[in-house]
Amino acid sequence: MKPNRLFLYFALSLGSALMLFPLWWMFVVSLSTPEDASAAATTSAGGALKLWPKNWLFSNYPQALAKMGSGTPWFGFLDAASNTILITALCVLGQVLSCSLVGFGFARMRFRGRDGLFLLMISTMMLPAQVTMIPLFILFRTFGWIDTILPLVVPMFFGTPFYIFMFRQFFAQIPEALVEAARLDGCGALGVWWRIMLPICRPVIAITAVFTFVFVWNDFLGPLIYLHSEEQMTLAVALNSFKNQYGDFRDAHLLMAASIVTMLPCIVLFFVAQRQFVGGLSLGAVKG
């Protein structure tokens, strides 16, 4: 293997630049003065594309965050951030536990109807979310869950087909001898899952956790529909309200600052988990 390294680096860097450029642009705008920001956002107004911040106005950040929500300064942001963190943490926990358990069941337990049920589960992946949106709302309302975090969190404890599928593929590859050994040591099904399976499937757990984190963190429609009061809002919804309140090009710098703060956890998490992630996928966890 001796590909032209220079060319490879060139292609990789060019691609990275294209991919990261928008993010950088947001960052530059977020540090600008209101005048520069509106010039950058109103391109046809002759605004030039600025690649380097003229001023490093980090004060835009506290200013933007303090303005979130409509009550006491900072409360809107602190409420939204806390809610989002709590919801996301619970969702990740629920998703990892339920999907690994169910995936384990489909991979390693023997019962009649297993393959049929598995096929059923796979086919539900094709269902557009729009089909179930309104009926689900009615259901959660009968439970009295509206304006609580329950409609967002509880379903996560019942598994999601995509991740169950991934766990199942992974578990199916684990040598039977390992499971037998545990059984002989007196482990029940739950024991095997908890003591043997979970510890060795860390890559899949990482993928599930990261994907779930990103999805829940960015989810807009769910919180919009199920949460009413401002106290309960998540960051995605708060950011959208923020956009509508400050979406005018006049406040582009504030909008970008708020957007970046909202995206930051996803970016950090991604860079930290990146190794696990790539390693996990390469274990063949998702082979059709």
Partner: peptide, 8 residues
């Protein structure tokens, strides 16, 4: 087995 997949 059914118990294990019951969450889903």
């Amino acid at each position: 087995g059914l118990l294990v997949i019951s969450p889903w």
